[in-house]
């Protein structure tokens, strides 16, 4: 019985983990290229969740269509935010970009609250279940996981095979070197920031498959914290590292949930959050460059 539950949780962990991974790629991309920590990360995830909600409840459309829409919303938000604030702060002390991204998050939360209100909402996209021997998984979650893997692969190919991708890689490696090659470094910064926010907002759509009634303007905070743990697991500046960091994190969260649930008198969900920060602390102490070797 316990083993069955554990293997069920492993599968659930991989499924959730791949979505977590995808939800952290944007954060790592922005940090890798611009060395800016997006403290407002979770708020952009939240915007994506509301895009999904709007598509499903108001337009009556399948959440799959909400993914490209959320990506486009993210690109637009990212470009606006980059040119309005980040660009001028790149050479300022780090605190400036931390405050800017933090306040962008607050601005988004309050704007969404004004439009949609602050109550918890949700939607139920029922596309059936898949029955494994030891566990049943909603098809919507499986699709979210597949979508995450697909997006991660597309990003990888884009990085390795396109001109814009190679410009971005060169800026990550040495921005001055990129500049003397004739690369428009400021343009690459803008593009990376927009792409990072686009991915983050799109990930918000995928995450809604896991929170049937958890959509709320203030839902992002938890995701910001998780994303930091995942990004550090993956070496902080590599989007692929982040993806695998997400897988590991999903597994840890789900497995520990099962184990904690066996302990009488504790609230397992709260303990999983404690555990994730314990992990963050340990990694930062022993291997601050991340446990997955970033390439």
């Amino acid at each position: 019985m316990f083993l069955e539950q554990l293997s069920g949780n492993l599968v659930q962990g991989v499924v959730l983990g791949s979505v977590y991974g995808m939800a952290t790629m944007g954060l790592s991309l922005i940090f890798g290229v611009l060395k800016v920590v997006n403290v407002g990360h979770g708020a952009f995830v939240m915007v994506g969740a509301f895009v999904a909600l709007f598509f499903f409840n108001t337009l009556g459309l399948n959440p799959i269509f909400a993914i490209p829409a959320a990506f486009a919303v993210g690109i637009a938000l990212g470009l606006t935010f980059y040119y309005a604030a980040i660009r001028k702060l790149l050479h300022a002390p780090e605190l400036a970009t931390l405050l800017a991204t933090f306040s962008a998050g607050v601005l988004l939360e309050e704007t969404i609250k004004m439009i949609f209100g602050s109550e918890f909402r949700g939607y139920n996209w029922d596309v059936g279940n898949i029955d494994l021997v030891f566990t049943a998984l909603p098809m919507s979650k499986i699709l979210a996981a597949l979508g995450s893997v697909l997006i991660a692969v597309l990003l990888y190919v884009w990085f390795k095979r396109t001109r814009a991708g190679s410009a971005m890689r060169s800026v990550v490696e040495d921005s001055q070197g990129a500049r003397v090659c004739g690369i428009n470094v400021d343009g690459v910064y803008a593009m990376s920031f927009a792409l990072g926010i686009g991915l983050t907002v799109a990930s918000g759509v995928l995450l809604t498959m896991f929170i049937p009634v958890g959509i709320n303007p203030y839902m992002g905070g938890g995701y910001t914290l998780k994303a930091f743990v995942i990004a550090v697991l993956g070496g902080l500046s590599s989007p692929y590292g982040a993806f695998f960091g997400g897988l590991v994190f999903g597994l840890i969260e789900n497995t520990s949930y099962t184990v904690f649930a066996l302990i009488p008198g504790v609230e397992p969900f709260a303990l999983t959050r404690f555990l994730s920060f314990l992990i963050l602390l340990i990694i930062l102490l022993i291997r601050p460059t991340g446990i997955i070797k970033a390439k």
Binding site: R169, S170, E173, D174, Q176, G177, R179, V180, C181, G182, I183, N184, V185, D186
Partner: peptide, 21 residues
């Protein structure tokens, strides 16, 4: 901007090399 100048045939070999390691 720098990239326009590079396009016009101006090149800089910077101090400290700045290769892509």
């Amino acid at each position: 901007s720098s990239h326009r100048k590079v396009e016009m045939g101006l090149a800089l070999v910077p101090e400290g090399k700045h290769l892509f390691p």
